[in-house]
Structures are given as structure tokens and as C-alpha cells.
């Protein structure tokens, strides 16, 4: 037997039985973890859907010695449904106002044009 045929006769790659069993076990666990999910796993997505119909209002106020920028997202259908989120704080009021301006513009971007809420929608009772 010459050198060439010795090299060509190299045994094919094999794994032992214990490793193979372990491999299949891993596959089993993978199949189990890839089970179909429940539709209410997406609840959080539907819960937050109203946020796409909100007007954005910027609010700059002083807190703990700094100027804090908050954004208020109010539903255009019912402005009393809103959330307030802290964005950034700055020691300089002008800088804070500038940041509020830009952050509001960024958050209020919408294909339908900027959505707004008016005071009339609140249905205030003057009595």
C-alpha cells in the first residue's frame, strides 16, 4: 500500500454513541422551547397601540436645582388619557428649552401631520 492510498483510506468522521444521544437530547429540548406562543403574549404591543394616536406636549420645569424636560403624550381622542416621560435635565434653562423643542419635534413626527389636542376637548365644567 503506497502513501497515497494510505492517506485516501482515512476513516470518515464519527462521533461516539453517548455524544450522539446527548445531541438528540439537545434537539428535543430545542423542540420544546420552540413551542407556539399564546396570542396574549403580544398583549403589551396592543396595550401600547394608543400611543400612535397621541399629541406630544413638552414640559420644562425646575426640579432639584435643574431644568427637567418631560414629554407628555396625550391621546387625541381623550386628552385625559396620557403618560408623562422624563427625557433629560439640564442646569441651563435655555439649553433645556432647546432640548425640549427638539425632542418634542422628534417624538411628534407623524405621517398625518402633527397631532394636537385642544383645551375644548377636555370639556371643562365652569360651575
Amino acid at each position: 500500500m503506497n502513501l497515497y492510498s494510505t492517506i485516501m483510506k482515512k476513516a470518515p468522521f464519527t462521533i461516539d454513541n453517548a455524544t450522539y444521544a446527548q445531541l438528540l437530547k439537545g434537539l428535543n429540548e430545542m423542540f420544546l422551547s420552540e413551542k407556539k406562543g399564546n396570542s396574549n403574549d403580544f398583549r403589551l404591543y396592543f396595550d401600547d397601540l394608543w400611543l400612535s394616536d397621541t399629541a406630544v406636549i413638552d414640559d420644562v420645569h425646575k426640579s432639584k436645582g435643574e431644568w427637567v424636560v418631560d414629554l407628555v403624550f396625550a391621546s387625541i381622542h381623550n386628552p385625559l388619557k396620557f403618560i408623562r416621560r422624563f427625557i433629560v435635565s439640564h442646569p441651563c434653562p435655555k439649553r433645556a428649552a432647546q432640548k425640549a423643542h427638539f425632542m418634542r419635534r422628534l417624538a411628534a413626527k407623524d405621517q398625518r401631520g402633527t397631532l394636537e389636542v385642544t383645551i375644548e376637548q377636555l370639556n371643562l365644567c365652569q360651575n
Partner: peptide, 18 residues
């Protein structure tokens, strides 16, 4: 054929797990 046997056992293990 040994692999075949291991597969069958593994399928049973999966059914038990499931």
C-alpha cells in the same frame, strides 16, 4: 443501526418530556 436505536429512545424521551 445503533444511531437508529438511540434516535428511537430519544423520541420516547421527548414524548415523556412533552
Amino acid at each position: 443501526v445503533t444511531k437508529m436505536l438511540i434516535q428511537i429512545k430519544s423520541r420516547i424521551d421527548y414524548l415523556v418530556l412533552n
